[in-house]
């Protein structure tokens, strides 16, 4: 019996993965092929970008302050407090900034995508689109992918800047370091390798989050319980994929950019 359950689970997983890749492929084709749903894309960008601005700023600010606090506390015991800016800068730009903003995006925008598409499925709105001859993938998924591809990097840059400001506030007012030295350390770490690494990640995260959440939303079945399940799965799977992809990308980027580990 247990073996049978595993077989069904595996088959379902394979079918789901196949459907997921097909959806991603078709939606990605929509980026370069007509029809283009510009208005829908702008609406999604407004919801995802402008709508997430405040929460990204708030979370990034406190992440930057907490990080700066931790690092300066640890480094002061070693007499190396002057490296606070450099370590905060590298941590934020390469790693924490993209991951934190992506997680916030998955939680706020991703859950919204899954629940909105889920309710459209349950309310027959997706079927209505198909009856009207409109491809739901192009109309609903592609704009959300484009929006994530454009908005997540922008939000990440904003989040990084705010985190660095938060780190600066702690370094100067709590750890009593020189503000000028903090910013000059930050400028040092703003080289091509770090910036490239910090900008590439949000593109990949955005693409994955949008695809996962759209897929989960469009696969919704079974009323309110089904919608709760698909929304939860969308956020959880997105977060898992973010951290795994982050590790893979970090490893690959360190190798490509010539860092020795």
């Amino acid at each position: 019996m247990r073996g049978r359950v595993h077989t069904i689970g595996l088959r379902e997983l394979i079918f789901n993965l196949q459907d997921f890749y097909l959806l991603s492929y078709r939606a990605s084709l929509g980026i370069i092929r007509r029809p283009f749903y510009i208005k829908d894309t702008i609406e999604q960008m407004d919801y995802a970008g402008a709508g997430s601005f405040f929460i990204v700023v708030l979370i990034s600010l406190f992440v930057g302050m907490a990080l700066s606090l931790q690092i300066s506390a640890e480094l002061s015991t070693l007499g190396l407090k002057m490296y606070t800016g450099k370590i905060v800068g590298i941590s934020i730009i390469r790693e924490l900034g993209p991951v934190v903003v992506a997680v916030v995006y998955a939680g706020r925008v991703g859950s919204g995508i899954a629940s909105e598409l889920g309710s459209m499925v349950l309310g027959h709105q997706v079927d209505t689109l198909r009856v009207f001859g409109v491809d739901p993938t192009r109309k609903l998924v592609t704009p959300r992918i484009v929006s994530a591809l454009l908005m997540l990097p922008v939000l990440t840059i904003i989040g990084d800047a705010v985190s660095l400001l938060g780190g600066y506030y702690i370094a100067v007012n709590v750890a009593h370091q020189s503000g000028t030295f903090y910013w000059s350390s930050i400028r040092e770490v703003l080289d091509f390798e770090n910036v490239f690494s910090g900008i590439l990640k949000p593109f990949v995260f955005g693409y994955l989050i949008a695809n996962i959440c759209c897929f989960m939303g469009l696969s919704t079945q079974g009323g309110a319980v089904g919608m709760r399940r698909s929304t939860t799965r969308a956020v959880v799977y997105s977060m898992i994929v973010i951290v795994i992809t982050d590790f893979v990308l970090t490893r690959a980027l360190l190798y490509i950019l010539g860092f020795s580990v």
């Binding site: 309710s119 459209m120 309310g123 027959h124 709105q125 079927d127 209505t128 198909r130 009856v131 009207f132 001859g133 491809d135």
Partner: peptide, 23 residues
Amino acid sequence: DEEGLREIRMKFSMVFQEGALFD
């Protein structure tokens, strides 16, 4: 396929339960 079905679907006008208006 979906593309081929479009021509068929145009022969019908469907009203779903509860209306299925776009929210």
